[in-house]
């Protein structure tokens, strides 16, 4: 079993394994561009749906149904189905109305639409993705949510050109990279079937390229948030460690009410820069969510 390789990293490994075998609760995020939390709660209650608010993020509601897509609040773009823990990185990035923000690997758009709401639909939000099929889903989702400050672009994020957006650097960038998705095992029980160490290493190279380019495209003083939904240090701390060597940035701590563990500085025969401990690992048993990794980087002048 692939997850055995993480036994040494995780305290209460049995609880971790048990959590990985349980299905995930269905969660939606209130799209505040179109409706208040109160109005969504009212519409859900009128429609006969039971819900529970997530304490760390009031816009997130755990629902009693697995098909929120067939509800009026969904039709109107008042809610968006989003795994609870995946709401963390946009919240850590915390863009302001009027900012210029890049979502480097944006499809299918849960974090993009969340960023649009955090920006109150002002400023400019650039959603990029290399995969045209997935971009089509992003466009539909963003339109349903009424995000009008959005540019949708199709390019390889490792070589992203700023020209289509006017050439100015970004204030902030969200880098939620393609990964081996080990942390989605609760949603997708076959997630680990095709796991392969060579695939993980290949992804690690792509992830470094994407994160490097995002840092280069962000102004000094700006913020870059790096996230994955996987446990493999090769795709998490190793990527941060490599990028620290070559790019003008540092890893900074961030606050969250979620229960988390620090990034690891040692894995197999490798050691990583001490500051990767500022990144946060989230295991499924800690908050009854999927697995996740999130780091906040500050772009420095030199």
């Amino acid at each position: 079993m692939i997850l055995e390789r993480y036994r040494g990293l995780i305290d209460s490994f049995d609880a971790f394994r048990d959590a990985c075998d349980r299905p995930l609760p269905s969660v939606v995020r209130v799209n505040t561009l179109k409706a208040s939390i109160e109005r969504v709660e009212r519409a859900l209650a009128d429609g006969g749906y039971a819900y529970e608010q997530c304490s760390w993020y009031p816009e997130l509601l755990r629902l009693s149904t697995d098909t929120p897509g067939n509800s009026w609040p969904y039709v109107h773009g008042w809610i968006y189905g989003q795994e609870e823990v995946s709401a963390l990185p946009a919240r850590v990035l915390s863009p302001s109305a009027g900012d210029r923000v890049l979502d480097a690997c944006a499809a299918p758009g849960s974090k993009t639409t969340q960023l649009g709401a955090l920006m109150d639909d002002r400023g400019t939000l650039i959603a990029n993705d290399a995969n045209l099929g997935r971009l089509s889903a992003l466009r539909t989702n963003a339109q349903r949510c009424g995000v009008t400050n959005l540019i949708v672009n199709s390019a390889d994020a490792q070589t992203l050109s700023l020209a289509p957006f006017g050439g100015e650097p970004f204030d902030h960038a969200l880098v939620d990279v393609p990964c081996s998705c080990e942390g989605t095992i609760r949603k997708n029980p076959t997630a680990l079937e095709d796991w392969d160490i060579d695939h993980v290493r290949g992804l690690s190279g792509i992830q470094r390229g994407i994160l490097r380019r995002a840092i280069q495209a962000t102004r000094a003083g700006g913020t870059v948030v790096y996230s994955t939904c996987t446990f493999a240090p090769e795709e998490n701390e190793a990527v941060l460690d490599a990028v620290l060597e070559t790019e003008r940035c540092r890893i900074v701590p961030f606050e969250t009410q979620l229960d988390t563990r620090p990034g690891v500085t040692e894995w197999e025969d490798k050691t990583y820069d001490q500051s990767v401990e500022n990144a946060r690992r989230i295991y499924p048993h800690l908050n009854d969510t999927g697995g996740f990794f999130c780091a906040k980087l500050e772009v420095t002048g030199e």
């Binding site: 002002r122 971009l135 540019i151 199709s154």
Partner: peptide, 19 residues
């Protein structure tokens, strides 16, 4: 399309705001 952000004239992107 209705777009509230900034973009250069003639840009070749997939979408600007909403149809």
């Amino acid at each position: 399309w209705a777009f509230s952000g900034d973009a250069p004239e003639g840009t070749e992107v997939e979408a600007l705001g909403i149809t």
